[in-house]
């Protein structure tokens, strides 16, 4: 089929126009054949965001920024095109943040829990998150002062050190270092000589520790039962102590009564009259026995042997 020049030109131009439009939409990340959902969010500021910045939900790219404008109340309204089909809850938030140190800024939508979903032209709550680099930038001045102060002091210190280290000191230091080195060398030599002994000592030590370990492991059940017994004994002792306590209390009571002269024993201990009676009785009895010994007839006068028996 022979095509006329007009048709050839027409086909070329038409194809170019179609390809240009498709390519343009493709590069702008606009769906090629359908309208995407437009939503917007208001932020305090929009550093690092530009047209074409990407929009993520849970790390998945769902769209891109296509318009940034200052509002009248000094905030920034960012319009986004969402290509994803997934519904976005009404109470979701849009965070303007950076995904990494070298990555540019992007918008991350945190899905909310609402059951109502945002519609075309809807608006999200915006939230500007400062990145590490920005925070660093703000703190940079303070940090710089600190660092320069530190360096100044370090310089001062170094200068003083330099002054202190005059030639004599240096010589002394040198000597000290040399003798220290010698000492170290000698210690090393000694250690080398004793290497075998040290090794065997360490061996013996570790063997002993091993034995101790097995011993401890072996006697563990016995120690345990012993502990149980000891605990039981302590409990028994406690009971004994309680009983003793009550016994002491009653004894105290008794002694008190005795002291006060109550009861038989009390009177016995506290009333001297019995003793005195007994004493006088003993004297009388003595006299009586003596009298009988000296003059038995006087007492036995009226008694005959027959009467007695």
């Amino acid at each position: 089929m022979h095509l006329s020049n007009e048709i050839k030109v027409g086909i070329t131009v038409l194809l170019a126009v179609v390809v240009a439009i498709i390519g343009f939409r493709f590069m702008r990340d606009i769906p090629i054949f359908r309208q995407a959902m437009q939503i917007s969010a208001v932020f305090d500021r929009a550093d690092g965001i530009s047209n074409g910045s990407l929009v993520y939900i849970k790390g998945v790219r769902v769209g891109s920024v296509n318009r940034i404008q200052l509002t009248e109340d000094a905030t920034v309204r960012i319009q986004m095109r969402i290509d994803s089909e997934i519904p976005i809850p009404q109470n979701s938030t849009a965070n303007l943040t950076s995904l990494g140190i070298v990555e540019g800024k992007s918008i991350v939508i945190e899905l909310g829990t609402s059951t109502e979903f945002i519609q075309h032209g809807g608006e999200l709550q915006g939230n500007y998150t400062e990145t590490m680099m920005e925070v660093l930038g703000q703190k940079g001045e303070e940090l710089g002062d600190d660092v320069s102060n530190t360096i100044y002091e370090l310089n001062l210190f170094l200068r003083q050190l330099n002054e202190t280290l005059d030639d004599d000191t240096r010589a002394t230091l040198d000597q000290t270092l040399r003798s220290t080195m010698e000492t170290t060398g000698r210690i090393a030599a000694i250690l080398e000589g004793k290497q075998d002994e040290i090794n065997s000592a360490i061996d013996a030590g570790s063997r002993m520790l091993g034995q101790l370990d097995t011993l401890a492991t072996d006697s563990r059940p016995r120690v345990d039962s012993l502990m149980v017994t000891v605990e039981q004994s302590i409990k028994d002792l406690e009971e004994v102590r309680l009983q003793l306590e009550s016994a002491t209390a009653s004894l105290n009571q008794i002694l008190e009564k005795v002291n006060n002269g109550e009861g038989t024993i009390g009177r016995l201990l506290n009333d001297p009259s019995i003793y005195e009676n007994l004493d006088s009785l003993t004297i009388e009895l003595n006299n009586l026995v003596k009298g009988i010994n000296e003059n038995p007839g006087r007492y036995l006068r009226h008694m005959s042997i027959i009467d007695i028996f």
């Binding site: 343009f24 590069m27 702008r28 047209n51 074409g52 910045s53 540019g104």
Partner: peptide
């Protein structure tokens, strides 16, 4: 494509 789209400005075209 991510890079190409990020720095795609219509004025360049």
């Amino acid at each position: 494509l991510k890079g190409a789209r990020m720095f795609f400005y219509p004025w360049n075209v």
